[in-house]
Design a protein around this nucleic acid. Sequence first.
DNA 1: CTGAAAGCGCTTACAG
DNA 2: CTGAAAGCGCTTACAG
Lengths: 357, 357
Amino acid sequence: MNSAADKRVTLADVAKLAGVSKQTVSRVVNGSEHVTEDTRTRVLQCIDTLGFRPSALARQLSTGRSQTIGVVSNGGQGYLVSGVAYLGMVRQADKMGYALLIKEMTDFSSGSIRTMLDYLIERQVDGVIWAGPEIGDSHAWLDTFDAASLPMPLVAINAKPRPGVDTVSFDNFEAGRVATRHLLSLGRKNIGHIAGPTNRWVSQQRVEGWKAALAEAGTSEMARNVVEGDWDVHTGGPGLRRLLEICPKLDAVFVGSDRMAIGVLAEAHKLGLRVPEDLAVMGVDNLPESAYLIPPLTSMTQDTPRMAEVALRLLVRRICERRGEPYPEACAIPENPLLTHDLVVRQSTLCGKLASK
Amino acid sequence: MNSAADKRVTLADVAKLAGVSKQTVSRVVNGSEHVTEDTRTRVLQCIDTLGFRPSALARQLSTGRSQTIGVVSNGGQGYLVSGVAYLGMVRQADKMGYALLIKEMTDFSSGSIRTMLDYLIERQVDGVIWAGPEIGDSHAWLDTFDAASLPMPLVAINAKPRPGVDTVSFDNFEAGRVATRHLLSLGRKNIGHIAGPTNRWVSQQRVEGWKAALAEAGTSEMARNVVEGDWDVHTGGPGLRRLLEICPKLDAVFVGSDRMAIGVLAEAHKLGLRVPEDLAVMGVDNLPESAYLIPPLTSMTQDTPRMAEVALRLLVRRICERRGEPYPEACAIPENPLLTHDLVVRQSTLCGKLASK
DNA sequence: CTGAAAGCGCTTACAG
DNA sequence: CTGAAAGCGCTTACAG
């Protein structure tokens, strides 16, 4: 009898049963204080017997806020962003009372971007996280983006900081520099770098960091020892082989991702190169698995869930600001924060001798 | 001037400018045929000049459909489900014109479940994917679940099939059996199993499959060689050590996840056990990395994105059925399908001699 | 082909 | 403390 097939129970139904106005029921539902304890309990009871569930849709339409944040990603390529980062976002969104509306983009033509933004506007999301990785000129539209042209605030993650656009990214330049310095500090003389795709902002920054470290050490000639991978494990091996062609005396390699580094370790093993004695290897990401590789992999920890969290908080801050409301303390995020990686040294770069220098 | 701060442009605004009724504008927006080419172009032009974006919210309220599917997950534990599976869902949802509303649960008390369902009802999602892994009695509520009590259909993934509840899962029993048969076929006599958490349905099924294979082979005495892990890489090593205590002559191990298998490989290496000569090792998941481990890992491929896709299609089918509408061909999914894993044999179980038997 | 009316289920001022 | 009215922006019959 109380089946879902029945018509939806509305505020009006409750009001009628309780013998009050919709108004009053609304007050009870929203916890207004201006209701007698008497009527409140009566209304609550009617809500219960009728199994009333307020329609969020209707509320959203009248209040103009959807308590929803749109997340635009590109699933195919952003492995980490799509997986681990979601966890950070979902959790944070939940805490702040927002739901996440997930959308995916497959190309970044200006038409597709317009369509996506229009969709989000139609859905009236309260804010947008632009989570697609910056590939080529995929984010070029942000260069001329006028924040005021969008009815809701937008925060980009893992993209190049731009004036007028909120961005939460890792300091990939610094990551490249710290990694390279580490290999230099081991006394390695022929270091190579297997970068991520060269059209990625993240990769480019890491390459710049690597160059900077080499320059600091007066060894800029190594800068040509760079090959391109695609982040994925299967490009690690071929990357190593190409590096060995460029630089046969290669004795260390800074790999752009732990997954490619796994490929490098496999290839080194196949080639009979001892790690770290003959070849020091390090990656970026510090996957849970990395500590258990053979040998355990030195890496740069990248706290992706944290990036997602910070982005969400910043977004909520912007949402509140636009509405002229105070924002929660937790949302006091600095402008365009650059999150840092941490170096975790393990056996793949640490051979007894050199380490204890 | 056309800033977003301005009031929202509505159907009425367009109607006024075009000198027609809201009605007609609505027809144009929704591509109705009963509009003169003349008025259509005029209206379209007005839409363009005004930058009109129809409010999905308002449409949803009047049509009663949100074109949104609620996905309930539990981020902390469902690494794969939360990451890779989302990609399959998002993609499929997009194709079928739905957006995904992501929610996370941290506990499975009946109160939390009720709250979550109420939330989804309030949001008026068109359907629900229940994606939390089945842990202990987390899904017990489904045993007495009356589908008609929910205003929208629900599909559970990776859970025990139950009468009256749509479920899309892997055939983990068969996976356990196939894996164990593989190790038996190699001539191994002392096989062990590192299971996932014993309170997980998935783990239990695999253990049952493993027992079944042993029974078939008349070697049920091996069935006691089971220890529990938590799916994660760090429990692989300890798992192996405990197995060696139980069964010092251990010569093969069926590991419940590739990530734990990575831990096992690391531990075996540390103990001086040769893989596969002394110890054959295999996992489940067939991660991209697994082919590049040392040695390359035999595994059972688990197409998680496909599970997500299938679940979404089945859900869309149910949504259409409830409304008495025909459903897309792609949604003709069988009831409670069990997806299968594929055995991928690699070096970690394949030593020359035994393999060529 | 086109339009006036009523309704989706809430909330926001405004009175009492 | 409580209620009648108008409105959020669209769509669904019903007429013409």
